[in-house]
Design a binder for these strands. Sequence first.
DNA 1: AAGTGAACCGTTATAACATAACACGTCGGC
DNA 2: GCCGACGTGTTATGTTATAACGGTTCACTT
Lengths: 158, 158
Amino acid sequence: MSKSRDHSHAASDRRDWARQVEKFCGQRELQLTPLRRQVLDILAGAQAPLGAYAIIEALSREQGKAVAPPTVYRTLDFFLENGFLHKVESRNAYAPCEHLGRRHHGILLICARCGRTDEIESPRVDEMLQETAAKAGFSAQRQMVEVEGLCEACGKAA
Amino acid sequence: MSKSRDHSHAASDRRDWARQVEKFCGQRELQLTPLRRQVLDILAGAQAPLGAYAIIEALSREQGKAVAPPTVYRTLDFFLENGFLHKVESRNAYAPCEHLGRRHHGILLICARCGRTDEIESPRVDEMLQETAAKAGFSAQRQMVEVEGLCEACGKAA
DNA sequence: AAGTGAACCGTTATAACATAACACGTCGGC
DNA sequence: GCCGACGTGTTATGTTATAACGGTTCACTT
């Protein structure tokens, strides 16, 4: 399998994500409606974060379902509010949260070449950011860390 | 003056910024044209990061000058390319870069209450991010770190 | 059974952010 | 004088996101 420790962007990871979201919805009595499941599948099937309009197109293409923007944005809000999804601010796109249930603040690694993103966690970075901000008199609530560069595969290719 | 070490968002800081940009343009033979200077002044006069369309409105209001979006975006590009400005990705806004000339990767502290942003630098955070990414096989090129929370003033007010 | 409220989705319209493509003027070098 | 680079103006359009209103379903109450 992959030799480094599981940062593979593999389809299996994303399918895993979909399964976990499903499980969480069951546990917390959140409604995973048909629309939400369709969007979940589309996101789970994507190799890179999707924009809202890409999801609209995918719904139309793959499910033959024509939906307007608000419908998709509401669905995205649902996933975001429940911590199932991250918004990739630098790209206006939405990516599966790979660490469901944990207190998040993920670090997003965005490949400039293939567009795929990986999410990693680092409590040390989180703490250091918190502290660094505190030194400036700032009380941190939410962190957004996005790193653009080359993923392992693209780094080797180049 | 301010008791903590100079994270005051003070108007004087921003005027300082404008002066430094001016200086840099002189040194590097960059043209600080009338339009660019007007935009510079508007940004220097703002208490919080401005969006492109806010700048358009300000140009119209303060300078009586009606400009179309491309004109402003080109000006912003000029400032961004030369490292004079940061784009605040989570807000689609543009903020003065407070550390001209240094290799940047600033950390943006964005107050959720008053909207003001402060930029701090932390080589340690930068390094740690770099390392953390490297452990995931990722070669980092550009970092975006935005922290939302309460600035000192707003923290006390609340 | 009728009444109520919450959650979800559909629909229309529009707001907010950003860029493509082309035109024109100025200025410096040849 | 011609040319190319640069900056700006202008028109049109592309992309991302939300406001506002309507309708359905369903659980719960009375």
